[in-house]
Write a protein that binds this DNA or RNA. Sequence first.
DNA 1: AGGCAACAATATACATACGAACAATATAAA
DNA 2: TTTATATTGTTCGTATGTATATTGTTGCCT
Lengths: 167, 167
Amino acid sequence: MTLEDELGLQKPVALLGHKALLSMCYTASRLRKKAGEFFRPFTLTDVQFNLMMLLKHQSGNKKGLSQVQLSNMMLVNRANITSLVDRMETAGLVARTPAPSDRRTNIIKLTTRGKKLLERVEPMYAREVEGIMAALKEPEQKKLIAMLEKIRSNIGDSNGKKKAPKT
Amino acid sequence: MTLEDELGLQKPVALLGHKALLSMCYTASRLRKKAGEFFRPFTLTDVQFNLMMLLKHQSGNKKGLSQVQLSNMMLVNRANITSLVDRMETAGLVARTPAPSDRRTNIIKLTTRGKKLLERVEPMYAREVEGIMAALKEPEQKKLIAMLEKIRSNIGDSNGKKKAPKT
DNA sequence: AGGCAACAATATACATACGAACAATATAAA
DNA sequence: TTTATATTGTTCGTATGTATATTGTTGCCT
């Protein structure tokens, strides 16, 4: 089933590039909705799961990440992380810790409860993802990733930091 | 530059499928941010532009679409359309019209002001999109679209309507 | 030291998403 | 025809996203 069939689109996607862009955004939208449904029974959102995954796998020796680090990794505004961590702290999934070297900085860490929940959900979600992506064979997935990277590199940095401020 | 380099991701994307999925969502996120920057000078959002494009190009003879039709085409909850149309009505871009055959239904139409704005913005946006998607050659774009469609068809319908409620 | 720019987190106002519950209307079933 | 069910739009509460302004902290430069 094509995008046109699904959405009744014809003229607005006359340009191939426009169609590709729409297709990407619609696919991402559906993926996130699917993820939302998956996580709901755990009183969790895809964003919160993503944050916990970063804390578990990306926090190096320190076992924690600052809010700015999280916002960069998640490609969202710093201001977002404040309320996100607020909610997750209330839910007992993460905790703010003062950074020893810089009093401006909060180090966000997983709580025991957060770790336990992640332990349970992570393998289930991995299976869910594999099920969805099984629509593409391995080499195709690699090609998809390569193409998406090409597009991203053509957009430039997401947080407004210009890549090469010419002159 | 790879996703790992940009985001410092290593372990959470150990699974190829997971990496492909993340790459898609991050790319879409950046595309939408880029679009947001583009539309801001027009006091417009990407979502509002999208809605106007649907009204202009998809509304058939009636020259208007119901809110449920819009929500289906935009893959969002119909509750969303209420406030979206509210804002756009306030901005004078669209208008609610009673449907002649069904008193439950609003037909949303572009106002003259909306049409004029679209006339001005649409060609500029088309150039913007072409610039971004020029990262991929035509056959690559087609392949990308085909792969995304495969994934979408593996997810099922977006609005909770099950495709084949087996027995 | 003292001043000043950069930075981290927060606060605010807004736009967009969701699900759930509701009233009014339309339609199918009895 | 009357009753049951489905659909449309709205409202509510909540989660996420943006840009912008503010506060406190750091660090650099004179």
